[in-house]
Computed example of a mutant assay.
Amino acid sequence: MFVIIKIIALLVSVWLRVSLGAKCPPSPTIAPCSCAQYINQISCWNIKPDVNLTQIFVNLTKALGKNSKQIIYDEFKLIDSELTDIGSDDDSVEDFFAGVAFNKIQITKNRKLKRIHNNVFKSSFNITTSITISENAILANDAPNERQIFDLLNSFEFATEIWLTDNNISTIPEKAFNRSQNSLAWLSFIDNNIVSVGSHAFYSLPALNYILLDGNRIDKISNKAFELSNNVSNYQLLRLFLRDNDLNSDSFESGTFERIHRKLLLDLSKNNITHLKRDVFTPVFRRNGSAIILRHNPLVCDCNFKWLYDRRLLYNSSHHDRHYYVHNIQCNGTKHDGFKMNELTQSHFQHCPHDPTVHCFMSTETDYDYQC
């Protein structure tokens, strides 16, 4: 409820700041960019390297006439340009967009784009709520520029969603989001070339509900990669998607999920996982409503799965309303090979050694008892 109220307050605040002067100027004023009046959008397609974007927006502000209100458009799009850099390290360029701000920013399919400089969108830092930077083939594909793109994203104080997808980013650095962004709920890094996530990468994002890391090359998860501040409700759901990576049963350090302090939906579909290690995954189930999805993994449901069955974490058709589930189990290397298993039963584990610590982890209405 608190997050919803904050989002509503943000939207009202942005609406109050919108200038009535943010209308489309005469077309030649901003050519080769264009303005769509019906959606209040500035689009710049196929921009060549010799085009001065700053001058375009200087012309725009002159055409509209500056007044006491800031000029704000609903959206800015930069698509299919031939630019290698947006902005400059030149400190004399105080405002790349000449004071014009945008509620949404989309930078897509710029095949030569290597870098977006930190202060390019300075006028939008306290305005923009949605950022999409996608399909830029060589963006931030070296270490200095990789760190810099996250420094830029850190500056959008009121962003609620960031899509940094299908670029050529290889790592999410340590403390990638190192400023508190209290409205940021959605982060997508789908289809990059990410191999690692640094420690405390998302620590300062109390409103975070979604982290999407699907379609990357992650093969190791450090025990502090997903550590989050505990300044939020323990029952606020975090959805962490790690589908279609290179993860296996040994990819997770002990303690990986110990520091999340949140109810968790963890999707590990389409990896190379054969079983879930108890010391790694037990903390996931501390909160009612937590779940792990294991669709399309080469699971071997041998004695390594017994701890999940003993702790009543697997689906049970007799108790279908139970809070704790491990979903979409399909076992390999058993007589059930090739069939989707709705549930495992005691018969699958009758040959396994007895676990004397089972009672230490039996679920209650709140958390597990870790006294043993």
Score class of each variant (00 low, 15 high):
Leu266Val: 04
Leu60Asp: 05
Ser123Phe: 02
Leu299Lys: 04
Asp302Lys: 01
His351Ser: 14
Gln106Thr: 10
Asp91Met: 12
Leu208Lys: 00
Lys77Val: 09
Asn167Met: 02
Glu161His: 14
Ser347Trp: 09
Ser222Glu: 07
Glu365Tyr: 13
Ile149Gly: 00
Val3Trp: 14
Phe226Leu: 00
Asn332Trp: 15
Leu53Met: 03
Ala101Trp: 04
Asp50Cys: 06
Tyr325Lys: 15
Val93Ser: 08
Gln181Ala: 13
Leu164Gln: 01
Leu10Val: 10
Ser170Ile: 15
Leu208Pro: 00
Leu184His: 02
Cys352Gln: 00
Val93Gln: 09
Met362Leu: 12
Glu174Gln: 14
Ser347Glu: 13
Arg311Ile: 12
Trp45Pro: 08
Gly333Phe: 05
Ser290Val: 01
Ser88Pro: 04
Arg295Gly: 10
Arg17Val: 04
Val120His: 00
Cys35Ile: 03
Leu266Cys: 05
Cys301Asn: 02
Ile292Leu: 02
Arg115Thr: 09
Asp89Ser: 14
Lys48Val: 07
Asn193Gln: 12
Ser199Ile: 09
Asn136Lys: 01
Ile30Thr: 04
Ile218Trp: 01
Leu264Asp: 03
Lys23Glu: 15
Val18Pro: 03
Pro283Ile: 06
Val51His: 00
Leu240Arg: 01
Pro206Ile: 02
Asn209Leu: 11
Ala9Tyr: 09
His261Trp: 10
His336Gly: 12
Lys69Tyr: 11
His327Met: 11
Tyr325Asp: 12
Ser269His: 09
Asp90Lys: 07
Val197Met: 02
Asn59Gln: 09
Asn288Pro: 13
Gln106Trp: 08
Asp50His: 07
Asn297Tyr: 06
Pro356Lys: 05
Asp219His: 07
Ser43His: 08
Thr128Cys: 07
Val120Pro: 00
His261Asp: 11
Lys114Gln: 07
Ile127Trp: 01
His348Glu: 14
Val93Tyr: 06
Ser233Arg: 08
Thr132Arg: 13
Asn126Cys: 08
Gln41Met: 10
Ala207Pro: 06
Thr366Gly: 10
Ser318Pro: 11
Ser196Thr: 10
Arg217Tyr: 10
Leu299Ala: 07
Thr160Trp: 04
Ser68Ala: 15
Thr108Gln: 11
His323Val: 11
Arg17Met: 06
Pro173Val: 05
Pro28Cys: 04
Arg286Gln: 14
Thr132Gly: 10
Ser19Glu: 06
Ala137Leu: 12
Cys331Gln: 05
Val3Arg: 15
Glu365Leu: 15
Gly255Tyr: 02
Arg179Trp: 10
Ser13Thr: 13
Ile39Asp: 12
Tyr38Leu: 13
Asn223Gly: 07
Ile42Asp: 01
Asn126Glu: 14
Asp85Cys: 06
Ile127Asp: 00
Asn67Ser: 11
Ala22Cys: 08
His200Cys: 11
Asp89Gln: 13
Leu78Pro: 00
Phe361Ser: 06
Asn245Tyr: 04
Leu78Met: 03
Gln148Lys: 09
Ile131Glu: 02
Cys24Ala: 02
Asn332Cys: 14
Asn297Trp: 03
Val100His: 01
Lys109Ala: 10
Ile47Gln: 00
Thr282His: 13
Glu174Cys: 11
Gln330Glu: 15
Ile329Arg: 03
Ala63Val: 05
Pro26Gly: 03
Asn342Val: 15
His319Cys: 12
Phe241Thr: 12
